[in-house]
Design a protein around this nucleic acid. Structure first.
Lengths: 121, 121
DNA sequence: CGCAAAATTGATAATGATTATCATTATCAG
DNA sequence: CTGATAATGATAATCATTATCAATTTTGCG
């Protein structure tokens, strides 16, 4: 059997929003934690199957994880300088729920990002 | 510059639903087409940026492509069987525009997907 | 305690998709 | 034809993820 290493969960919490396995690993390294990459992957898998975290995919295919149930936000990202604003997504939540219901889907999550040019760019 | 090889598009059409680059390549090989894997990838990228196909991710992260209608839409994707429904996203368009305006962003686009378990899964 | 079985860990190698290189080939205007 | 430009594809490089397996830690029990 294999259980999740609690330090992985705690790091993911501290990371705020989404983080990939690689990012969690690097973050832990930077903070002086001694842990192997393998264990990070294993722990995230385990947290996933326990429904403690959710997984999404970045555009490049890298898997990113976040705590389930914690309120989440979306991002407004500048294509020019990469600056990011966290924004509220109430309308999206509702849209996702409505659409899922309409087609009989259960256990739904969603992704949504907006990108454009910020005032400075 | 680089344009899309028409045989790639035609193969993707013939494949029916979604197909990954690797699958399109293998399919073309099996049918005796002489084409390189690189060209398949390039063509799919090109079709993607021309909005002729759209891309999703399988659970394992592999990119899958499919012809898409010209109208802008979003997807409701089943995590179990991969089944996909195209849905209307008027609410999202509005949300994106509102948020962008609030923070002074211009030239905005967005991504949004919903995923869950379909009635059959 | 002492000790063996089971679980956990992590370095390393393997896998597999995707992307970068770069030399070759096809196309096309003048 | 001829040179320029674009397209192609074999090959190597990259990068996340997964498999291996030996070493270490934990656990249960006499």
């Amino acid at each position: 059997m294999s259980r999740s290493n609690p330090r992985v969960l705690s790091t993911l919490e501290r990371a705020g929003g989404f983080a990939s396995a690689q990012e969690v690993y690097k973050l832990m390294q930077r903070e002086g934690e001694k842990i192997g990459l393998t264990t990070v992957y294993r722990s995230l898998q385990s947290l996933l199957s326990d429904r403690i975290v959710d997984v999404l995919r970045r555009d490049d295919g890298e898997a990113i994880y976040r705590l389930c149930g914690s309120t989440h936000h979306h991002h407004l990202v500048c294509k020019g300088c990469g600056d990011t604003v966290e924004i509220e997504g109430g309308a999206i939540e509702k849209w996702a729920r409505t659409m899922a219901e309409e087609f009989g889907y259960r256990d739904v999550g969603h992704t949504a990002e907006i990108f454009g040019l910020c005032p400075k760019c």
